[in-house]
Amino acid sequence: MDDQLTTLSRVLERTDDRLRAAADGAARVWPTGFESLDLALGGGFRAGSLALVAGPQGLGKTTFALQVARNAVCAGHVAVYFSYEHDPEDLMQRLVTLEAGERYGVDSPGLDKVRAAFEDHTNSASLDDRMTGLRGGDEALKAVRDYADRLHIHRSTGTSTDLEVISSCVEEVWRSTGQMPLVIVDYLQKVKVPTPGLSDEDRTGVIVESLKDFAIDGEMPVLAVVASDRAGIQAGKRMRVQHLRGSSALAYEADVVLIFNHKYDVVARHHLVYDIGNAERFHQWAVLTLEKNRQGKDGVNLEFRKRFEQSRFESDGHMVTEQLVDERLFQD
């Protein structure tokens, strides 16, 4: 999009017009649905902002991103999920599992059982009948159907899904729904760039700058999952913003940077030595650090219980009370 020169008077006029339109005026902040995180962010992800989420492999980055999308559409917003890692059917199964978990907790069927019900090719029963056979399955399926029209999923590939495709899809959603969506890119480093032969650093710079411009021009939030470099995925090491692949561009352009770590990996040694029972408990929690926050305070450490068998985090997290360190000082 071409640069646009405007006066502050025109900005005031546009703002006033937007606020007078109730539907448009309400969509300036998209809550994540994680109450403690929304409190730290001043309500959620803001229009025109680029947020990044990172963490070690297997610590729930996709789980978190999909749960944020689900929470947004449950609140009446629209979301577009660009998935470079998972097909739409897989995401749908995760959402059904999540909804069952929200209703029945640890007594709900896990993702393995939901997948088995979906993928049993010897069974000719309908989707509804298959879900009725699982505890809470029928309620979970109904919940997904209730917001299914507001959650758009794009099966993206690193060979064809570039920023132009992303922009075109978002515009299509906006025209069909009348709402600017929350945009989720999973994950950033797989977005195709038009210039071949760039280094990882330069590719990441092109993508993150374009996504930031895209968020500003579209007046919507963009949440992107990002990968770490080799140093950031070492066992027992706390991931920080400098460990993200293309970290200089990511740290500069992003408005919000969220980084997950295993709680067990980042608590100070004395919490483990003097209470061995903490080791098992800490394995059940993930620490989400608000490393950068142009919307307010940063350096905030929150913790959320992992319920990955139910494809979710418990959303009622809280501040970490234990002392954290940069690297694990206690070994199994």
Rank of each mutant, 00 (worst) to 15 (best):
residue 2 D to K: 00
residue 4 Q to L: 12
residue 4 Q to H: 12
residue 10 R to I: 04
residue 11 V to L: 14
residue 18 R to V: 11
residue 30 W to P: 02
residue 36 S to P: 06
residue 40 A to D: 10
residue 48 G to R: 01
residue 53 V to T: 08
residue 58 G to H: 03
residue 59 L to D: 11
residue 59 L to K: 00
residue 61 K to R: 13
residue 62 T to I: 06
residue 64 F to M: 14
residue 71 N to S: 14
residue 78 V to L: 03
residue 81 Y to D: 00
residue 82 F to M: 05
residue 87 D to Y: 03
residue 95 L to C: 09
residue 96 V to Q: 02
residue 96 V to I: 15
residue 96 V to A: 04
residue 96 V to P: 02
residue 100 A to Q: 04
residue 103 R to W: 12
residue 116 A to R: 11
residue 116 A to F: 00
residue 118 F to A: 11
residue 124 S to H: 11
residue 124 S to C: 06
residue 125 A to D: 14
residue 125 A to N: 07
residue 126 S to G: 07
residue 132 T to W: 09
residue 132 T to I: 07
residue 133 G to I: 08
residue 134 L to A: 05
residue 134 L to R: 10
residue 148 A to W: 09
residue 151 L to N: 02
residue 155 R to W: 12
residue 161 T to S: 11
residue 163 L to A: 09
residue 171 E to F: 09
residue 178 G to F: 02
residue 179 Q to L: 10
residue 182 L to E: 03
residue 183 V to W: 07
residue 184 I to T: 05
residue 184 I to N: 04
residue 184 I to S: 04
residue 185 V to Q: 00
residue 190 K to H: 13
residue 198 L to V: 10
residue 199 S to M: 11
residue 202 D to K: 15
residue 202 D to E: 15
residue 203 R to V: 01
residue 204 T to Q: 03
residue 210 S to A: 15
residue 210 S to T: 14
residue 211 L to D: 00
residue 226 V to Q: 05
residue 227 A to V: 08
residue 228 S to T: 13
residue 234 Q to E: 11
residue 240 R to L: 10
residue 244 L to D: 07
residue 246 G to W: 08
residue 249 A to M: 10
residue 250 L to W: 00
residue 251 A to Q: 12
residue 252 Y to F: 12
residue 252 Y to A: 13
residue 254 A to H: 02
residue 256 V to H: 05
residue 259 I to C: 04
residue 261 N to K: 12
residue 265 D to C: 03
residue 268 A to Q: 09
residue 272 L to V: 04
residue 277 G to K: 14
residue 283 H to R: 15
residue 285 W to T: 07
residue 286 A to R: 13
residue 289 T to D: 13
residue 289 T to M: 10
residue 290 L to F: 07
residue 291 E to N: 03
residue 292 K to G: 09
residue 293 N to L: 09
residue 299 G to Q: 06
residue 300 V to Q: 07
residue 308 F to K: 05
residue 308 F to M: 09
residue 309 E to N: 14
residue 310 Q to Y: 12
residue 315 S to F: 06
residue 322 E to S: 09
residue 325 V to D: 06
residue 329 L to I: 07
residue 332 D to H: 12
